[in-house]
Design a protein around this nucleic acid. Structure first.
Lengths: 256, 256
DNA sequence: GAACAAGTGTACGGAATGCGCACACTTAGG
DNA sequence: CCTAAGTGTGCGCATTCCGTACACTTGTTC
Protein backbone atom coordinates (compact mmCIF):
# COMPACT_ATOMS: atom_id res chain seq x y z
CA UNK A 1 0.00 0.00 0.00
CA UNK A 2 1.45 3.26 -1.06
CA UNK A 3 1.80 5.64 1.83
CA UNK A 4 1.25 9.37 1.41
CA UNK A 5 3.15 11.90 3.49
CA UNK A 6 1.08 13.18 6.36
CA UNK A 7 0.79 16.65 4.89
CA UNK A 8 -0.82 15.25 1.77
CA UNK A 9 -4.17 16.75 0.81
CA UNK A 10 -6.13 14.05 -0.94
CA UNK A 11 -8.76 16.40 -2.28
CA UNK A 12 -6.09 18.20 -4.24
CA UNK A 13 -5.13 15.02 -5.98
CA UNK A 14 -8.74 14.25 -6.77
CA UNK A 15 -9.40 17.75 -8.02
CA UNK A 16 -6.55 17.53 -10.48
CA UNK A 17 -7.58 14.03 -11.47
CA UNK A 18 -11.02 15.29 -12.36
CA UNK A 19 -9.62 18.13 -14.44
CA UNK A 20 -7.22 15.80 -16.21
CA UNK A 21 -9.96 13.32 -16.97
CA UNK A 22 -10.94 15.67 -19.79
CA UNK A 23 -7.58 15.13 -21.46
CA UNK A 24 -8.40 11.60 -22.46
CA UNK A 25 -10.32 11.97 -25.66
CA UNK A 26 -13.82 13.17 -24.99
CA UNK A 27 -14.40 16.84 -24.30
CA UNK A 28 -17.73 16.19 -22.64
CA UNK A 29 -17.99 13.82 -19.73
CA UNK A 30 -20.76 12.60 -17.47
CA UNK A 31 -20.51 12.12 -13.75
CA UNK A 32 -20.19 8.36 -14.14
CA UNK A 33 -17.45 8.64 -16.73
CA UNK A 34 -15.41 10.90 -14.52
CA UNK A 35 -15.98 8.64 -11.54
CA UNK A 36 -14.68 5.68 -13.52
CA UNK A 37 -11.72 7.58 -14.96
CA UNK A 38 -10.58 8.93 -11.63
CA UNK A 39 -11.39 5.87 -9.55
CA UNK A 40 -13.82 7.56 -7.21
CA UNK A 41 -17.39 6.98 -6.21
CA UNK A 42 -20.02 8.73 -8.22
CA UNK A 43 -21.01 10.86 -5.29
CA UNK A 44 -17.46 12.01 -4.84
CA UNK A 45 -16.84 12.76 -8.50
CA UNK A 46 -20.05 14.69 -8.55
CA UNK A 47 -18.95 16.86 -5.64
CA UNK A 48 -15.77 17.81 -7.45
CA UNK A 49 -17.48 18.39 -10.76
CA UNK A 50 -20.09 20.65 -9.24
CA UNK A 51 -17.51 22.51 -7.23
CA UNK A 52 -15.36 23.09 -10.30
CA UNK A 53 -18.44 24.24 -12.15
CA UNK A 54 -19.22 26.69 -9.35
CA UNK A 55 -15.69 28.01 -9.61
CA UNK A 56 -16.09 28.48 -13.34
CA UNK A 57 -13.61 25.92 -14.62
CA UNK A 58 -16.28 23.59 -15.92
CA UNK A 59 -19.73 24.17 -17.26
CA UNK A 60 -22.66 21.83 -16.94
CA UNK A 61 -24.53 21.08 -20.12
CA UNK A 62 -27.49 18.94 -19.18
CA UNK A 63 -25.91 15.97 -17.49
CA UNK A 64 -22.47 16.38 -19.01
CA UNK A 65 -19.61 18.65 -18.10
CA UNK A 66 -17.03 20.36 -20.26
CA UNK A 67 -14.07 22.58 -19.60
CA UNK A 68 -14.39 26.33 -19.94
CA UNK A 69 -11.63 28.60 -21.24
CA UNK A 70 -10.89 29.48 -17.66
CA UNK A 71 -8.83 26.31 -17.26
CA UNK A 72 -6.18 28.15 -19.26
CA UNK A 73 -5.67 30.49 -16.33
CA UNK A 74 -4.02 27.71 -14.40
CA UNK A 75 -1.10 27.37 -16.78
CA UNK A 76 -1.04 30.96 -17.97
CA UNK A 77 1.61 32.14 -15.58
CA UNK A 78 3.96 29.40 -16.64
CA UNK A 79 3.69 30.55 -20.24
CA UNK A 80 3.81 34.28 -19.64
CA UNK A 81 6.19 34.46 -16.73
CA UNK A 82 9.79 35.40 -17.27
CA UNK A 83 10.33 31.88 -18.43
CA UNK A 84 11.65 29.93 -21.30
CA UNK A 85 8.73 30.12 -23.76
CA UNK A 86 8.63 33.88 -23.43
CA UNK A 87 12.29 34.14 -24.34
CA UNK A 88 11.86 31.75 -27.24
CA UNK A 89 8.82 33.15 -28.99
CA UNK A 90 10.52 35.79 -31.10
CA UNK A 91 13.24 33.41 -32.23
CA UNK A 92 10.80 30.69 -33.14
CA UNK A 93 8.92 33.22 -35.20
CA UNK A 94 12.00 34.22 -37.13
CA UNK A 95 12.87 30.61 -37.78
CA UNK A 96 9.39 29.68 -38.88
CA UNK A 97 9.11 32.66 -41.16
CA UNK A 98 12.54 32.49 -42.71
CA UNK A 99 12.51 28.78 -43.35
CA UNK A 100 8.77 28.43 -43.87
CA UNK A 101 8.70 25.45 -41.58
CA UNK A 102 7.13 24.79 -38.21
CA UNK A 103 9.39 25.39 -35.24
CA UNK A 104 8.82 24.28 -31.65
CA UNK A 105 10.31 24.33 -28.19
CA UNK A 106 9.89 21.43 -25.80
CA UNK A 107 10.92 20.35 -22.34
CA UNK A 108 11.17 16.82 -20.96
CA UNK A 109 8.37 15.81 -18.60
CA UNK A 110 8.63 12.24 -17.45
CA UNK A 111 8.59 10.01 -20.50
CA UNK A 112 7.18 12.68 -22.76
CA UNK A 113 8.23 15.86 -24.42
CA UNK A 114 5.91 18.71 -23.65
CA UNK A 115 5.36 21.55 -26.10
CA UNK A 116 5.84 24.89 -24.37
CA UNK A 117 5.97 27.08 -27.45
CA UNK A 118 5.33 26.55 -31.10
CA UNK A 119 5.13 28.66 -34.22
CA UNK A 120 3.58 26.94 -37.18
CA UNK A 121 4.41 27.57 -40.78
CA UNK A 122 1.50 28.81 -42.84
CA UNK A 123 0.87 25.59 -44.66
CA UNK A 124 -1.13 22.64 -43.64
CA UNK A 125 0.77 20.57 -41.17
CA UNK A 126 0.43 16.88 -40.67
CA UNK A 127 0.78 16.89 -36.93
CA UNK A 128 -1.63 19.11 -35.14
CA UNK A 129 0.05 19.58 -31.79
CA UNK A 130 -0.42 22.66 -29.70
CA UNK A 131 1.07 24.08 -26.56
CA UNK A 132 0.71 21.75 -23.59
CA UNK A 133 0.54 18.66 -25.75
CA UNK A 134 2.74 15.64 -25.16
CA UNK A 135 4.50 13.21 -27.43
CA UNK A 136 6.60 10.17 -26.49
CA UNK A 137 10.12 11.51 -26.03
CA UNK A 138 12.03 8.52 -27.36
CA UNK A 139 10.46 8.75 -30.80
CA UNK A 140 11.00 12.45 -31.43
CA UNK A 141 14.02 14.52 -32.36
CA UNK A 142 13.57 16.86 -29.41
CA UNK A 143 13.06 13.98 -27.03
CA UNK A 144 16.25 12.27 -28.13
CA UNK A 145 18.26 15.41 -27.69
CA UNK A 146 16.88 15.80 -24.19
CA UNK A 147 17.35 12.18 -23.18
CA UNK A 148 20.86 12.10 -24.60
CA UNK A 149 21.88 14.97 -22.32
CA UNK A 150 20.60 13.33 -19.14
CA UNK A 151 23.05 12.07 -16.55
CA UNK A 152 23.83 8.41 -17.05
CA UNK A 153 21.72 7.18 -14.14
CA UNK A 154 18.72 9.21 -15.18
CA UNK A 155 19.03 8.10 -18.78
CA UNK A 156 19.20 4.50 -17.63
CA UNK A 157 16.12 4.93 -15.50
CA UNK A 158 14.34 6.51 -18.46
CA UNK A 159 15.24 3.65 -20.75
CA UNK A 160 14.13 1.06 -18.22
CA UNK A 161 10.64 2.47 -18.15
CA UNK A 162 10.32 3.34 -21.81
CA UNK A 163 7.56 1.69 -23.82
CA UNK A 164 8.79 1.28 -27.36
CA UNK A 165 6.25 1.02 -30.10
CA UNK A 166 6.31 0.80 -33.86
CA UNK A 167 4.53 3.84 -35.27
CA UNK A 168 5.78 3.65 -38.86
CA UNK A 169 8.06 1.35 -40.78
CA UNK A 170 10.93 3.73 -40.02
CA UNK A 171 10.49 3.64 -36.25
CA UNK A 172 13.57 2.56 -34.31
CA UNK A 173 11.64 0.41 -31.87
CA UNK A 174 14.62 -1.56 -30.63
CA UNK A 175 16.17 -0.66 -27.31
CA UNK A 176 19.76 -1.37 -28.30
CA UNK A 177 19.45 0.57 -31.52
CA UNK A 178 17.90 3.44 -29.59
CA UNK A 179 20.84 3.40 -27.15
CA UNK A 180 23.31 3.64 -30.00
CA UNK A 181 21.30 6.43 -31.57
CA UNK A 182 21.31 8.34 -28.29
CA UNK A 183 25.10 8.01 -28.08
CA UNK A 184 25.39 9.46 -31.56
CA UNK A 185 23.02 12.29 -30.68
CA UNK A 186 25.02 13.18 -27.61
CA UNK A 187 28.26 13.25 -29.53
CA UNK A 188 27.07 15.27 -32.47
CA UNK A 189 24.82 17.57 -30.48
CA UNK A 190 21.74 17.26 -32.63
CA UNK A 191 19.14 14.70 -33.64
CA UNK A 192 17.45 14.03 -36.94
CA UNK A 193 14.43 11.80 -36.77
CA UNK A 194 13.16 10.48 -40.04
CA UNK A 195 9.45 9.63 -40.17
CA UNK A 196 9.57 7.52 -37.03
CA UNK A 197 6.46 8.90 -35.38
CA UNK A 198 4.51 9.97 -38.40
CA UNK A 199 4.95 8.96 -42.00
CA UNK A 200 6.12 11.89 -44.06
CA UNK A 201 7.56 14.00 -41.28
CA UNK A 202 11.19 14.66 -40.44
CA UNK A 203 12.32 16.51 -37.35
CA UNK A 204 15.64 18.16 -36.58
CA UNK A 205 16.40 19.21 -33.02
CA UNK A 206 19.20 20.76 -30.97
CA UNK A 207 19.51 21.30 -27.22
CA UNK A 208 19.11 24.75 -25.69
CA UNK A 209 21.83 25.26 -23.14
CA UNK A 210 22.43 28.07 -20.71
CA UNK A 211 25.85 27.64 -19.12
CA UNK A 212 25.73 24.01 -18.10
CA UNK A 213 22.01 23.87 -17.63
CA UNK A 214 19.78 22.16 -20.17
CA UNK A 215 16.73 24.35 -20.71
CA UNK A 216 14.92 22.45 -23.42
CA UNK A 217 15.09 21.42 -27.05
CA UNK A 218 14.45 23.38 -30.21
CA UNK A 219 13.08 21.78 -33.31
CA UNK A 220 12.20 22.28 -36.94
CA UNK A 221 9.74 19.95 -38.50
CA UNK A 222 9.69 19.45 -42.25
CA UNK A 223 7.78 17.35 -44.72
CA UNK A 224 9.81 14.42 -45.93
CA UNK A 225 8.84 14.85 -49.54
CA UNK A 226 10.30 18.29 -49.85
CA UNK A 227 13.64 17.91 -48.11
CA UNK A 228 16.27 15.22 -48.07
CA UNK A 229 18.22 14.57 -44.89
CA UNK A 230 21.49 15.94 -46.25
CA UNK A 231 19.95 19.26 -47.22
CA UNK A 232 18.33 19.52 -43.81
CA UNK A 233 21.68 19.17 -42.12
CA UNK A 234 23.38 21.66 -44.39
CA UNK A 235 20.78 24.37 -44.33
CA UNK A 236 18.65 24.02 -41.24
CA UNK A 237 21.14 22.87 -38.64
CA UNK A 238 23.20 26.09 -38.56
CA UNK A 239 20.07 28.23 -38.28
CA UNK A 240 18.74 26.05 -35.51
CA UNK A 241 21.95 26.23 -33.53
CA UNK A 242 22.08 29.96 -33.89
CA UNK A 243 18.52 30.29 -32.62
CA UNK A 244 19.24 27.98 -29.69
CA UNK A 245 22.13 30.17 -28.59
CA UNK A 246 20.05 33.30 -28.98
CA UNK A 247 17.22 31.85 -26.90
CA UNK A 248 19.60 30.82 -24.15
CA UNK A 249 21.09 34.31 -24.07
CA UNK A 250 17.68 35.94 -23.94
CA UNK A 251 16.58 33.63 -21.19
CA UNK A 252 19.69 34.25 -19.18
CA UNK A 253 19.30 37.97 -19.56
CA UNK A 254 15.83 37.89 -18.08
CA UNK A 255 16.98 36.24 -14.92
CA UNK A 256 19.13 39.18 -13.95
CA UNK B 1 -21.70 35.49 5.07
CA UNK B 2 -21.60 33.79 1.76
CA UNK B 3 -23.02 30.31 1.89
CA UNK B 4 -21.59 27.53 -0.21
CA UNK B 5 -23.76 24.73 -1.53
CA UNK B 6 -23.48 21.63 0.60
CA UNK B 7 -21.73 19.68 -2.12
CA UNK B 8 -18.95 22.24 -2.22
CA UNK B 9 -15.43 20.89 -1.74
CA UNK B 10 -13.42 23.60 -0.09
CA UNK B 11 -10.09 21.98 -0.73
CA UNK B 12 -10.73 22.24 -4.44
CA UNK B 13 -11.16 25.97 -4.15
CA UNK B 14 -7.99 26.27 -2.11
CA UNK B 15 -6.04 24.09 -4.49
CA UNK B 16 -6.94 26.27 -7.43
CA UNK B 17 -6.29 29.41 -5.41
CA UNK B 18 -2.77 28.20 -4.69
CA UNK B 19 -2.11 27.44 -8.35
CA UNK B 20 -3.49 30.81 -9.41
CA UNK B 21 -1.39 32.64 -6.87
CA UNK B 22 1.47 32.20 -9.30
CA UNK B 23 -0.35 34.28 -11.90
CA UNK B 24 0.14 37.50 -9.97
CA UNK B 25 3.55 38.65 -10.97
CA UNK B 26 6.20 36.59 -9.30
CA UNK B 27 7.05 33.16 -10.66
CA UNK B 28 8.59 32.04 -7.40
CA UNK B 29 6.63 32.18 -4.19
CA UNK B 30 7.28 31.28 -0.57
CA UNK B 31 4.86 29.58 1.74
CA UNK B 32 4.02 32.83 3.48
CA UNK B 33 3.41 34.68 0.25
CA UNK B 34 1.01 32.02 -0.93
CA UNK B 35 -0.71 31.97 2.43
CA UNK B 36 -1.24 35.72 2.25
CA UNK B 37 -2.36 35.66 -1.39
CA UNK B 38 -4.87 32.88 -0.84
CA UNK B 39 -6.07 33.94 2.58
CA UNK B 40 -5.12 30.76 4.37
CA UNK B 41 -2.98 29.92 7.33
CA UNK B 42 0.63 29.16 6.66
CA UNK B 43 0.19 25.58 7.71
CA UNK B 44 -2.65 25.13 5.27
CA UNK B 45 -0.91 26.79 2.35
CA UNK B 46 2.09 24.64 3.05
CA UNK B 47 0.02 21.46 2.87
CA UNK B 48 -1.28 22.41 -0.56
CA UNK B 49 2.08 23.51 -1.86
CA UNK B 50 3.77 20.32 -0.77
CA UNK B 51 0.95 18.23 -2.14
CA UNK B 52 1.13 19.96 -5.51
CA UNK B 53 4.87 19.49 -5.49
CA UNK B 54 4.40 15.78 -4.81
CA UNK B 55 2.02 15.61 -7.74
CA UNK B 56 4.58 17.32 -9.96
CA UNK B 57 2.79 20.58 -10.65
CA UNK B 58 5.17 22.62 -8.54
CA UNK B 59 8.79 22.21 -7.68
CA UNK B 60 10.44 23.29 -4.48
CA UNK B 61 13.59 25.32 -4.83
CA UNK B 62 14.94 25.87 -1.35
CA UNK B 63 12.09 27.56 0.42
CA UNK B 64 10.33 28.82 -2.67
CA UNK B 65 8.00 27.09 -5.08
CA UNK B 66 7.57 27.53 -8.79
CA UNK B 67 5.29 25.99 -11.38
CA UNK B 68 6.52 23.16 -13.57
CA UNK B 69 5.55 22.70 -17.20
CA UNK B 70 3.11 20.09 -16.03
CA UNK B 71 0.57 22.78 -15.16
CA UNK B 72 -0.01 23.01 -18.90
CA UNK B 73 -1.60 19.58 -18.83
CA UNK B 74 -4.59 20.99 -17.03
CA UNK B 75 -5.64 23.24 -19.88
CA UNK B 76 -4.25 21.13 -22.70
CA UNK B 77 -7.48 19.36 -23.46
CA UNK B 78 -9.31 22.62 -23.85
CA UNK B 79 -6.80 23.71 -26.48
CA UNK B 80 -6.46 20.45 -28.33
CA UNK B 81 -9.99 19.15 -28.09
CA UNK B 82 -12.35 19.49 -30.98
CA UNK B 83 -12.87 23.03 -29.91
CA UNK B 84 -12.71 26.50 -31.24
CA UNK B 85 -8.94 27.15 -31.13
CA UNK B 86 -8.30 23.96 -33.04
CA UNK B 87 -10.65 25.07 -35.80
CA UNK B 88 -9.13 28.51 -35.89
CA UNK B 89 -5.42 27.76 -36.00
CA UNK B 90 -5.05 27.24 -39.72
CA UNK B 91 -7.04 30.35 -40.56
CA UNK B 92 -5.12 32.52 -38.14
CA UNK B 93 -1.94 31.29 -39.75
CA UNK B 94 -3.11 32.25 -43.21
CA UNK B 95 -4.13 35.67 -42.01
CA UNK B 96 -0.91 36.31 -40.15
CA UNK B 97 1.20 35.17 -43.04
CA UNK B 98 -0.68 36.92 -45.80
CA UNK B 99 -1.01 40.22 -44.01
CA UNK B 100 2.19 40.00 -42.00
CA UNK B 101 0.35 41.04 -38.88
CA UNK B 102 -0.47 39.30 -35.64
CA UNK B 103 -3.86 37.60 -35.51
CA UNK B 104 -5.68 36.32 -32.45
CA UNK B 105 -8.83 34.60 -31.28
CA UNK B 106 -10.44 35.45 -27.97
CA UNK B 107 -13.46 34.56 -25.90
CA UNK B 108 -15.15 36.59 -23.20
CA UNK B 109 -14.48 35.45 -19.64
CA UNK B 110 -16.07 37.70 -17.06
CA UNK B 111 -14.72 41.19 -17.51
CA UNK B 112 -11.78 40.05 -19.59
CA UNK B 113 -11.02 38.73 -23.00
CA UNK B 114 -9.05 35.53 -22.86
CA UNK B 115 -6.64 34.57 -25.64
CA UNK B 116 -7.34 31.04 -26.83
CA UNK B 117 -5.25 31.08 -30.00
CA UNK B 118 -2.76 33.47 -31.46
CA UNK B 119 -0.41 33.54 -34.41
CA UNK B 120 2.18 36.27 -34.27
CA UNK B 121 3.71 37.99 -37.23
CA UNK B 122 7.46 37.60 -37.52
CA UNK B 123 8.37 41.03 -36.34
CA UNK B 124 8.77 42.36 -32.90
CA UNK B 125 5.43 43.00 -31.34
CA UNK B 126 4.70 45.55 -28.69
CA UNK B 127 2.28 43.48 -26.73
CA UNK B 128 3.60 40.21 -25.60
CA UNK B 129 0.46 38.26 -24.85
CA UNK B 130 0.25 34.52 -25.10
CA UNK B 131 -2.44 31.90 -24.93
CA UNK B 132 -4.33 31.98 -21.65
CA UNK B 133 -3.59 35.63 -21.03
CA UNK B 134 -6.29 38.13 -20.19
CA UNK B 135 -6.87 41.74 -21.11
CA UNK B 136 -9.68 44.05 -19.99
CA UNK B 137 -12.48 43.49 -22.49
CA UNK B 138 -13.84 47.03 -22.64
CA UNK B 139 -10.54 48.47 -23.90
CA UNK B 140 -9.89 46.01 -26.71
CA UNK B 141 -11.34 45.54 -30.16
CA UNK B 142 -12.20 41.90 -29.52
CA UNK B 143 -13.74 42.72 -26.17
CA UNK B 144 -15.99 45.38 -27.65
CA UNK B 145 -17.20 43.07 -30.35
CA UNK B 146 -18.04 40.46 -27.73
CA UNK B 147 -19.71 42.85 -25.30
CA UNK B 148 -21.70 44.46 -28.08
CA UNK B 149 -23.24 41.11 -28.99
CA UNK B 150 -24.38 40.32 -25.46
CA UNK B 151 -28.06 40.36 -24.59
CA UNK B 152 -29.12 43.71 -23.21
CA UNK B 153 -29.37 42.58 -19.60
CA UNK B 154 -25.96 40.93 -19.69
CA UNK B 155 -24.37 43.93 -21.31
CA UNK B 156 -25.88 46.17 -18.67
CA UNK B 157 -24.57 43.95 -15.91
CA UNK B 158 -21.16 44.00 -17.55
CA UNK B 159 -21.12 47.78 -17.74
CA UNK B 160 -22.22 48.14 -14.14
CA UNK B 161 -19.19 46.26 -12.94
CA UNK B 162 -16.66 47.59 -15.41
CA UNK B 163 -13.65 49.47 -14.07
CA UNK B 164 -12.67 52.08 -16.62
CA UNK B 165 -9.13 53.30 -16.63
CA UNK B 166 -7.09 55.65 -18.75
CA UNK B 167 -4.26 53.65 -20.33
CA UNK B 168 -3.22 56.12 -23.03
CA UNK B 169 -4.39 59.52 -24.14
CA UNK B 170 -6.64 57.81 -26.68
CA UNK B 171 -8.47 55.64 -24.17
CA UNK B 172 -12.24 56.03 -24.15
CA UNK B 173 -12.55 55.95 -20.38
CA UNK B 174 -16.02 57.42 -20.21
CA UNK B 175 -18.98 55.13 -19.66
CA UNK B 176 -21.41 57.01 -21.87
CA UNK B 177 -18.93 57.27 -24.70
CA UNK B 178 -18.24 53.56 -24.34
CA UNK B 179 -21.95 52.83 -24.54
CA UNK B 180 -22.24 54.78 -27.79
CA UNK B 181 -19.18 53.04 -29.17
CA UNK B 182 -20.70 49.65 -28.34
CA UNK B 183 -23.88 50.58 -30.17
CA UNK B 184 -21.85 51.51 -33.23
CA UNK B 185 -19.90 48.26 -33.01
CA UNK B 186 -23.06 46.20 -32.83
CA UNK B 187 -24.55 47.94 -35.86
CA UNK B 188 -21.50 47.79 -38.08
CA UNK B 189 -20.40 44.34 -36.96
CA UNK B 190 -16.77 45.17 -36.28
CA UNK B 191 -14.64 47.23 -33.94
CA UNK B 192 -11.54 49.28 -34.53
CA UNK B 193 -9.68 50.31 -31.42
CA UNK B 194 -7.04 52.95 -31.86
CA UNK B 195 -4.20 52.91 -29.34
CA UNK B 196 -6.51 52.83 -26.36
CA UNK B 197 -4.72 50.14 -24.41
CA UNK B 198 -1.22 50.59 -25.71
CA UNK B 199 0.29 53.54 -27.47
CA UNK B 200 1.14 52.62 -31.05
CA UNK B 201 -1.18 49.69 -31.46
CA UNK B 202 -4.42 49.46 -33.40
CA UNK B 203 -6.75 46.47 -33.28
CA UNK B 204 -9.49 45.43 -35.66
CA UNK B 205 -11.94 42.71 -34.61
CA UNK B 206 -15.01 40.92 -35.89
CA UNK B 207 -17.30 38.40 -34.17
CA UNK B 208 -17.18 34.72 -35.04
CA UNK B 209 -20.70 33.43 -35.40
CA UNK B 210 -21.99 29.93 -35.90
CA UNK B 211 -25.71 30.08 -36.65
CA UNK B 212 -26.94 32.37 -33.91
CA UNK B 213 -24.27 31.43 -31.44
CA UNK B 214 -21.38 33.75 -30.69
CA UNK B 215 -18.21 31.68 -30.52
CA UNK B 216 -15.59 34.36 -29.99
CA UNK B 217 -13.87 37.28 -31.65
CA UNK B 218 -11.16 37.40 -34.28
CA UNK B 219 -8.60 40.15 -34.40
CA UNK B 220 -5.74 41.64 -36.31
CA UNK B 221 -3.34 43.85 -34.48
CA UNK B 222 -1.23 46.38 -36.37
CA UNK B 223 1.28 49.04 -35.54
CA UNK B 224 -0.22 52.50 -35.69
CA UNK B 225 2.71 54.02 -37.53
CA UNK B 226 2.40 51.77 -40.53
CA UNK B 227 -1.33 51.78 -41.19
CA UNK B 228 -3.97 54.44 -41.13
CA UNK B 229 -7.49 53.56 -39.98
CA UNK B 230 -9.05 53.92 -43.41
CA UNK B 231 -6.59 51.52 -45.01
CA UNK B 232 -7.21 49.04 -42.24
CA UNK B 233 -10.91 49.06 -42.94
CA UNK B 234 -10.48 48.75 -46.68
CA UNK B 235 -7.89 46.03 -46.73
CA UNK B 236 -8.05 44.07 -43.50
CA UNK B 237 -11.74 44.02 -42.72
CA UNK B 238 -12.78 41.87 -45.70
CA UNK B 239 -10.03 39.36 -44.99
CA UNK B 240 -10.99 39.21 -41.35
CA UNK B 241 -14.65 38.62 -42.12
CA UNK B 242 -13.79 35.91 -44.56
CA UNK B 243 -11.64 34.17 -41.98
CA UNK B 244 -14.34 34.47 -39.33
CA UNK B 245 -16.83 32.72 -41.59
CA UNK B 246 -14.32 30.03 -42.44
CA UNK B 247 -13.56 29.38 -38.79
CA UNK B 248 -17.22 29.13 -37.91
CA UNK B 249 -17.76 26.64 -40.73
CA UNK B 250 -14.80 24.56 -39.65
CA UNK B 251 -15.95 24.59 -36.09
CA UNK B 252 -19.46 23.57 -37.01
CA UNK B 253 -18.20 20.75 -39.18
CA UNK B 254 -16.27 19.25 -36.32
CA UNK B 255 -19.32 18.95 -34.15
CA UNK B 256 -21.02 16.52 -36.50
C1' DG C 1 -46.32 -2.20 -20.71
C1' DA C 2 -43.64 -4.83 -17.41
C1' DA C 3 -39.21 -5.66 -16.20
C1' DC C 4 -34.73 -4.36 -16.32
C1' DA C 5 -30.33 -1.88 -16.72
C1' DA C 6 -27.86 2.20 -16.31
C1' DG C 7 -27.90 6.44 -15.74
C1' DT C 8 -29.25 10.61 -12.63
C1' DG C 9 -29.80 13.57 -7.94
C1' DT C 10 -30.13 13.67 -2.76
C1' DA C 11 -29.67 12.63 2.18
C1' DC C 12 -27.22 11.58 6.23
C1' DG C 13 -24.41 9.43 10.03
C1' DG C 14 -19.91 8.73 11.07
C1' DA C 15 -14.91 8.26 10.21
C1' DA C 16 -10.95 10.52 9.10
C1' DT C 17 -9.12 14.26 7.14
C1' DG C 18 -7.51 18.55 7.18
C1' DC C 19 -7.47 22.62 10.48
C1' DG C 20 -4.74 25.98 12.90
C1' DC C 21 -2.73 26.71 17.17
C1' DA C 22 1.53 26.36 19.43
C1' DC C 23 6.35 25.60 19.81
C1' DA C 24 11.19 25.24 18.12
C1' DC C 25 14.36 26.70 14.97
C1' DT C 26 17.01 29.71 11.38
C1' DT C 27 18.32 33.96 9.41
C1' DA C 28 18.91 38.89 8.99
C1' DG C 29 19.18 43.49 10.83
C1' DG C 30 19.64 47.06 14.26
C1' DC D 1 21.96 40.32 22.01
C1' DC D 2 17.38 40.89 20.99
C1' DT D 3 13.75 41.44 17.91
C1' DA D 4 11.27 40.43 13.69
C1' DA D 5 9.99 37.53 10.18
C1' DG D 6 10.62 33.82 8.12
C1' DT D 7 10.84 28.46 8.29
C1' DG D 8 9.25 23.26 9.67
C1' DT D 9 6.52 20.10 12.78
C1' DG D 10 3.38 17.97 16.10
C1' DC D 11 -1.09 17.15 17.74
C1' DG D 12 -5.94 17.29 19.57
C1' DC D 13 -10.33 18.41 17.81
C1' DA D 14 -13.98 20.02 14.77
C1' DT D 15 -15.22 19.74 10.16
C1' DT D 16 -15.35 18.09 6.09
C1' DC D 17 -15.86 14.95 3.04
C1' DC D 18 -16.93 9.98 2.38
C1' DG D 19 -19.84 6.42 0.60
C1' DT D 20 -23.82 3.90 1.30
C1' DA D 21 -28.54 3.84 0.45
C1' DC D 22 -32.74 5.21 -1.74
C1' DA D 23 -35.75 7.57 -5.18
C1' DC D 24 -36.16 8.99 -9.62
C1' DT D 25 -35.58 9.26 -14.96
C1' DT D 26 -34.56 7.23 -19.28
C1' DG D 27 -34.15 3.84 -22.80
C1' DT D 28 -34.06 -1.05 -24.12
C1' DT D 29 -35.72 -5.76 -24.26
C1' DC D 30 -39.00 -9.20 -24.34
Amino acid sequence: MEQRPDYFVKSTEKTLAVLLAFNAGATELTVSQVAAATDQTRASARRFLLTLADLGYLEAQGSTFRQTPRVLDIGASYLSGLTLPQAATAHLQSLAHELEETSSLCVLEGQDILYVERVAAPRLHLMNVSIGNRLPAWATSMGRVLIAQLAEAEQESFLERVQLQRYTEHTVADLDALRRELDTVREQGWSLVNQELDEGLRGLAVPVYRKNQLLGALNISVQAGRNNPEAIKQILLPKLREAATAIADDFGGRLA
